[in-house]
């Protein structure tokens, strides 16, 4: 038990005693907001179980602790010996924009907050700097589809890039929904190249009557050119189906099903033995 920095908290005579406390409450922070739905409406409907406000606060605190990099705040400076950049490629003068970025102490939560505030206010979320070498009146393209640029104002004498462009365009043929499966079946290598190769489940009666309609080219293009969702909008939901299912509860002491609820704190335990263990912890935390 010596010399590797792990402190034993459970006495050998009382192996199940939980000598462990949650990290101190540091209040709600950005990481909690990032973990949990932000809109009030969703928050109301997404409470897990029949929790009291006190239990909800504990839940958020626990989730925030699980999201942390380490349980203590650590600050590790960049090693001093490297500050003179000896032996490194010289990147030349640091531009003001780069200096500002390197000095920024903002967290992800700060940036996310800025972004959402701009979206709410309907303003441009990013202040974009001008092009470093651009002449004063250089036209800044307003097109939202910059990939098309080479099709438009291209030097007419330049060699056409069409074949390359085409190969990167989404051209889905009618049989495309079969394609991945056909690719995966090695035995089909002798199949007539003119016909779609047979599929191992061709005789499956379920497949016979089922022909999903393949989306049109326009539909595909629409899918592929839609802009990215914001960070918050891309967060996976708690689906309606899942909300209808009972949430599983576990014993806080041993991890078995949490069938018993502590009357004092609402915590879950499996049975009497773990309840007794829990009560000692509960007492020290909340008092009599």
């Amino acid at each position: 038990m010596i010399n590797f920095g792990v402190r034993e908290v459970a006495m050998s005579t009382v192996p199940d005693r939980p000598g462990w406390a949650y990290v101190p409450d540091t209040g709600l922070n950005a990481s909690v907001t990032a973990l949990q739905p932000t809109s009030r409406k969703r928050h109301r409907t997404e409470l897990v179980g029949d929790n009291s406000a006190k239990q909800d606060a504990k839940l958020l605190r626990d989730l925030a602790a699980l999201d942390r990099e380490s349980h203590r705040d650590v600050s590790i400076p960049v090693p001093v010996r490297n500050r003179d950049n000896a032996g490194r490629v010289s990147h030349g003068k640091v531009t003001p924009a780069v200096r500002k970025i390197l000095q920024s102490q903002k967290t992800f939560g700060n940036y996310l907050g800025d972004f959402e505030a701009h979206v709410a206010a309907g303003t441009q979320p990013v202040s974009l700097p001008p092009a470093p070498n651009a002449p004063r009146l250089a036209p800044i393209p307003a097109s939202a589809t910059p990939f098309k640029r080479s099709h438009k104002k291209k030097d007419p004498n330049a060699p056409p890039k069409e074949p390359l462009r085409k190969s990167s365009m989404p051209v889905l043929k009618a049989e495309s929904s079969h394609l991945p499966i056909q690719n995966s079946v090695g035995e089909e290598k002798l199949a007539d190249a003119l016909d779609p190769p047979p599929h191992p489940r061709d005789k499956d009666p379920l497949l016979r009557s089922w022909i999903p309609s393949i989306p049109t080219q326009e539909e595909i293009m629409k899918l592929l050119t839609a802009p990215p969702l914001s960070y918050n909008k891309a967060k996976g939901n708690w689906t309606e189906d899942d909300r209808r299912k009972p949430v599983r509860q576990f014993c806080e002491v041993c991890g078995y099903w949490g069938r018993v609820k502590c009357m004092r704190c609402g915590g879950r335990v499996c049975a009497l033995e773990c309840l007794n263990t829990h009560k000692e912890e509960c007492f020290t935390r909340y008092g009599a």
């Binding site: 990099e69 349980h71 806080e252």
Partner: peptide, 22 residues
């Protein structure tokens, strides 16, 4: 990260305090 932190919590509750040994 979250799964490691969760395992840290479970071990620290039940056996050794591992919170400084993530």
């Amino acid at each position: 990260k979250l799964m490691t932190n969760y395992l840290t919590r479970l071990i620290s509750l039940r056996q050794y305090d591992m919170r400084n040994d993530i």
